[in-house]
């Protein structure tokens, strides 16, 4: 394992302004659009009993974190199409090391995105929430992002350059919709909400809310997210081994 490599790699990407704008612009614009118009005067959300502005902030933080993590796929696709990963294979960096560096980078971009969205919200709207509750919410969202970092890597491993974008959109929109990031699941029949609980994006948002309320049952999301992480992780390693040869 090479800590130095991981550090260089993640800082390199954090300095990539285009990528950061991509993962921050949409959540911030939506934060001001929705948060500003509906939550500016301290309304309370009836489902979560949190201030509406907090719910919106967490939703947008989750959203930005998800984009940041998934966007790792473009990076990997580029590295594969250019042959940079072949160059890396003739170094001591192991396959596991390479993949870990990608997860760490995705997680670094995600936490950066979460922190910026939360900071902007706190500075602009002054929502009522303790520092501890914010911290728990941030950690909750951040842990919830792990499966998305892995999905991003999987897309990166499978997609040809021309398919990376559509695949990204399908995963991103599908998971957002199924996980209730866009349309509240309450408007669907109860069974839809039940089914949605196996989708990782459902918990991405819920974990933030649970953190903000400093309560909730952590066991179910832990099991769901670990199961997804293990499944994606195994798939990624299988794929990486097959990908070794130049075809």
């Amino acid at each position: 394992m090479s800590i130095a490599y991981i550090r260089l790699e993640s800082f390199r990407q954090l300095k990539n302004a285009r990528l950061l704008i991509f993962s921050l612009a949409v959540p911030l614009v939506m934060l001001f659009a929705f948060g500003g118009s509906f939550g500016g005067s301290g309304q309370i959300d009836q489902t979560t009993h949190l201030p509406w502005i907090v719910v919106t902030t967490l939703q947008m933080a989750a959203y930005g974190a998800m984009i940041a993590a998934l966007s790792q796929s473009f990076n990997i696709v580029t590295e594969r199409s250019i042959g940079w990963n072949r160059q890396l294979r003739i170094t001591p960096l192991s396959g596991t090391g390479y993949l870990i560096s990608k997860v760490v980078t995705a997680m670094a971009l995600a936490i950066f995105s979460i922190l910026v969205v939360v900071a902007v919200s706190v500075l602009s709207f002054h929502p009522h929430l303790t520092v501890g509750a914010w911290a728990a919410a941030i950690v909750g969202i951040w842990l919830g992002v792990i499966p998305f970092a892995l999905i991003g890597i999987l897309i990166g491993q499978f997609a040809k350059p021309e398919y990376a974008q559509p695949l990204f959109m399908v995963c991103f929109m599908g998971l957002s919709l199924l996980g209730g990031l866009w349309v509240p699941l309450q408007i669907f029949p109860q069974w839809v909400s039940n089914v949605a609980q196996v989708v990782p994006s459902y918990w991405l948002n819920r974990l933030g809310q649970m953190g903000a309320r400093l309560d909730g049952d952590w066991l179910t999301p832990a099991i769901v997210l670990v199961a997804w992480a293990v499944a994606f992780g195994a798939f990624i390693i299988w794929r990486y081994r097959r990908d070794a040869a130049r075809s």
Binding site: L8, R12, E79, I82, I90, L93
Partner: peptide
């Protein structure tokens, strides 16, 4: 086996050196 276009030459060498 090419280098990443967004990096400088020195960064590429440093990245490989780091492993």
């Amino acid at each position: 086996g090419a280098l990443m276009p967004t990096m400088t030459v020195a960064q590429s060498v440093a990245l490989v050196a780091s492993v």
